[in-house]
């Protein structure tokens, strides 16, 4: 799916960055707690989560809504703060970062994909991707990124002129254009029909396998778990179970 030259360039860069400690962790966390509100109205979204995520891993977080998986994703992605506990990205302590450092962290290392795409309605597909290109260090060309997700023909369309699946693919193009080290996906296929969903998952898998991008996917769809290296089951703000898949399924074989 990805053209060779681009891939090589991106893969080289990642290897160079990780050459000191090729098998290190992308994320480590212990005792992560998140409480919204206080007193009687307090909601415990996370009740002490410990985890380790290796570089290049593809992790699926499963669980009912309100189980804390999105909260964890948001904290690791640097858009929310933990109430207690520590979390590290590589050797940097996320839980100790200032707003400014977190912004830099997101800018340099992180890509996000959401259930509802969160595209800028006033920017065309190409411009939505450019938006990230303008603040990234060595971004992919927007048209190239859109070609990767099969939208080469629709670069000048606005979000309101695209289908849900197409919008989500723009969001993916936007996320991968800067070659993020980590990609966070919150219900990436939640708003899509199964055919389009599979296409999206295929892109994610490709990215993970060929660029060694660390990917965390939050989902309701248990079937998605089959494509992960490991699956973390959430309930009630805690990780109840971690399952390692012996062999990873191809997205094409996933049905939901």
């Amino acid at each position: 799916m990805f053209p060779g030259a681009l891939l090589d360039r991106f893969a080289e860069r990642r290897q160079a960055a990780h050459s000191q400690d090729p098998d290190g962790f992308a994320f480590r966390a212990s005792g992560l707690t998140k409480v919204y509100g206080d007193g009687a109205a307090a909601v415990h979204a996370l009740r002490g989560v410990d985890l380790e995520v290796g570089r290049g891993e593809l992790i699926v977080l499963l669980g009912p809504s309100g189980s804390g998986k999105s909260t964890l994703l948001n904290i690791l992605g640097g858009i929310d703060r933990a109430s207690a506990g520590v979390a590290f990205y590589e050797s940097a302590e996320l839980t100790a970062m200032s707003d400014r450092t977190l912004t830099a962290y997101r800018r340099r290392h992180v890509g996000f994909i959401f259930q509802f795409y969160n595209l800028m309605p006033s920017l065309s597909a190409r411009e939505n991707v450019d938006l990230v290109g303008e603040i990234a260090a060595d971004p992919m060309d927007a048209v190239e990124a859109l070609s990767l997700v099969g939208l080469a023909e629709r670069v000048n369309h606005f979000p309101s002129e695209l289908s849900g699946g197409e919008q989500q693919r723009v969001a993916i193009a936007r996320a991968i254009a800067k070659n993020p080290d980590v990609l966070f996906c919150d219900e990436p296929t939640g708003a899509l029909d199964s055919k389009t969903g599979i296409e999206v998952l295929r892109v994610l898998k490709d990215l993970n396998e060929r660029l060694s991008t660390t990917i965390l996917i939050v989902t309701h769809a248990a079937a998605t778990a089959a494509m992960a290296d490991r699956v973390m089951h959430f309930s009630d703000g805690r990780i109840r179970e971690v399952v390692t898949n012996e062999s990873k399924a191809d997205p094409a074989d996933i049905h939901w």
């Binding site: 800028m120 309605p121 006033s122 920017l123 065309s124 411009e127 939505n128 450019d130 938006l131 303008e134 000048n156 369309h157 606005f158 979000p159 309101s160 002129e161």
Partner: peptide, 25 residues
Amino acid sequence: APEFFRNAKGATKGFSLPLDRPTRM
């Protein structure tokens, strides 16, 4: 209904200036 932006004449044409994306927004 989502805010509707169209790729009509002018919607992109008028902004062929080398403007950054936020300014276009």
